[in-house]
């Protein structure tokens, strides 16, 4: 089965038709959950990146502490994004298929998650990582998550 066929099947499923048949405010609720999820990821990533980059003032605080106490926000945020994202996606699955911003978003998301569980996780588990490596990671994760948010914002416009 091709991806397009899969998307067609998803869109014609009973759940999808139920969601699609609701009032437009029903969809707005999932959009709201989606943006809360995004903020829950972007905020901790921003804070930890600032610490990794060595923002003066924040540098005196423990990197491991900051990273550990923000980690749960990231995973809760991701959970909310996946949950609400499914409901946003299924009623109009085939509309997303030709949308280049949609695919760009998932490409950036995949890379962001890979970097998150490798480089980011590794560097935030040690108290004073090499400054250059820390700054590179901070810049990379910020770029990737903002690219996810930005390309997501473009989906509705292209």
């Amino acid at each position: 089965m091709s991806v397009l066929e899969l998307f067609k099947d998803i869109q014609t499923s009973e759940l999808s038709r139920f969601v699609g048949g609701q009032n437009h405010l029903f969809g707005a609720i999932f959009q709201l959950i989606h943006i809360v999820g995004l903020i829950l990821i972007l905020s901790p990533v921003t804070l930890v990146s600032l610490r990794l980059a060595g923002l003066s003032g924040l540098r005196e605080q423990s990197l491991v502490d900051i990273a550990q106490s923000t980690a749960k926000f990231i995973w809760v945020g991701l959970g909310l994004l996946v949950f609400s994202g499914i409901f946003i996606f299924i009623p109009a699955a085939t509309n997303y298929y030709p949308n280049f911003a949609f695919w760009a978003k998932f490409l950036f998301l995949a890379i962001a998650l890979i970097v998150h569980v490798t480089l980011y996780k590794k560097l935030t588990s040690i108290e004073s990582p090499h400054l250059l490596a820390a700054r590179f990671t901070a810049g990379l994760v910020m770029f990737l998550w903002l690219a996810v948010a930005f390309s997501a914002r473009f989906i509705g416009f292209v």
Partner: peptide
């Protein structure tokens, strides 16, 4: 998009 990024840095950091 910039509005959203601004939010992440302002409201997002204020959140903490």
């Amino acid at each position: 998009g910039i509005h959203l990024i601004g939010l992440a840095f302002s409201v997002g950091l204020l959140f903490f």
